[in-house]
Design a protein around this nucleic acid. Structure first.
Lengths: 223, 223
DNA sequence: ATTTAAATGTGATATAAATCACATTTAACA
DNA sequence: TGTTAAATGTGATTTATATCACATTTAAAT
């Protein structure tokens, strides 16, 4: 497989020269993961840059008390750049929430691109900056909003950022949902069922339909 | 003032060529801030890269409920790279906790260095990656530890990462301390006074001395 | 040095959310 | 297709921490 024909190029990779793309092709392994499989694991060695070509992934860390889902990332995106870059071992894990296609890129080759190709480096910096700001705000919401608001946020996130559809199959169990918004499976259960009773959403197991977006936005804002 | 003579060069700036340092000198403004002054402000335009040469700074965001101190940064470090880079307006504020010396670097010149100097770009990427991992863990502790553990963490942070001394002047009011660990001034008050009663620390207003580090570590780990 | 405002301490009370316990449903698999 | 395990729902209870209220101390300002 040659990267030149790949339809999933990242914003950074688009700026590589033909020669560089060629070099990438020889140092890039394509791997597929099934739903539920771990892509990389906390405390294991990190020696490749991981690029998510298609699919949906949860990034998670085992905290002092629970597993926390730090973020949910959909393709295309680099997965865990920070952990690969200046750490010998991964500081967190990534698990496929849907079937995923992933590229493992040799770290040295990737570094070489940064050294030689300023536009490539700039794109990576831009992505990292965006990630950091996003994580600031996720943390702010996690710590300052009440659970109802956090559930509303998460539902709106799946609608707008992941599926672009008011109806979707929730890719998480109630427990994972809890890990994503820092609460328990019981609280998630109660709140989404309350939402259903109030006619804000419709749920059938994992299938969710947002009926009253404005109410969700309102609940999200009130905290 | 010429940057070539500056004793506070960042790890990235060290890799600039003589010509580039010269260019930097012409596009870099040195400013001093007194304790309590705002260095940059949420919602204001961000048009400069800000480099903290000396002093101590709090980075903070106004959340849905309270002000949150996202992190406390001591020199030398870039302040708010993420917010300057791909946002027109700042997403958060930075305020001096001590008198600070700061450089305002023209954004275009900084970008130019990234494009032209791969080692410079690589250093910036390294710093951004480190920041992101740190913020993941800060968020994890914020959400999963009980207040006692978070207070212990913060005290150990000031000891190890800021002052390198078991005795220090706390650069925050009780309320700011609360904003830093996501709690109220009352809870901070109660807990540090409990710590004093148990002989773990000694406090006299803002002056703190850590007496039993092992106990603090233990409290921090138990959550 | 005196006044005023800001910061801090501390008890009493309220509250959001965790925990516990168990019933029920859904999905996995053999 | 039936059996077992995993996931979910829901009430009752507990708990950590916020909130409220007010006294006291410290720092700032005149």
């Amino acid at each position: 497989m040659n990267c030149i024909d790949c339809n999933f190029k990242s914003s950074a990779t688009k700026f590589l020269s033909k020669g560089e793309i060629e070099e990438l092709s020889h140092n890039c392994a394509h791997v597929e993961f099934k739903k539920g499989e771990k892509i990389f694991k906390e405390s294991s060695f990190s020696s490749n840059i991981i690029y998510l070509k298609s699919g949906l992934v949860k990034v998670h860390i085992l905290g002092p008390k629970n597993e926390q889902i730090t973020k949910i990332t959909k393709a295309s995106a680099f997965l865990g750049l920070p952990t690969t870059f200046n750490e010998k071992v991964n500081k967190y894990s990534a698990t496929a929430l849907e079937n995923c296609k992933v590229c493992f890129i040799d770290l040295e080759v990737f570094k070489h691109f940064i050294y030689k190709n300023g536009v490539f480096a700039y794109q990576i910096i831009t992505e990292l900056c965006k990630n950091e700001i996003d994580s600031f705000f996720r943390c702010l919401n996690r710590t300052q909003k009440q659970i109802t608001g956090r559930v509303a946020d998460a539902l709106l996130f799946f609608y707008h950022d992941i599926y672009d559809d008011k109806e979707f199959i929730l890719p998480l169990t109630r427990e994972e949902f809890g890990n994503y918004i820092d609460t328990t499976r019981e609280s998630v259960s109660r709140i989404i069922n309350d939402f259903q009773k109030e006619g804000i959403i419709k749920i059938k197991n994992k299938k969710i339909k947002i009926l009253k977006e404005e109410r969700l936005i309102n609940i999200s804002e009130k905290g």
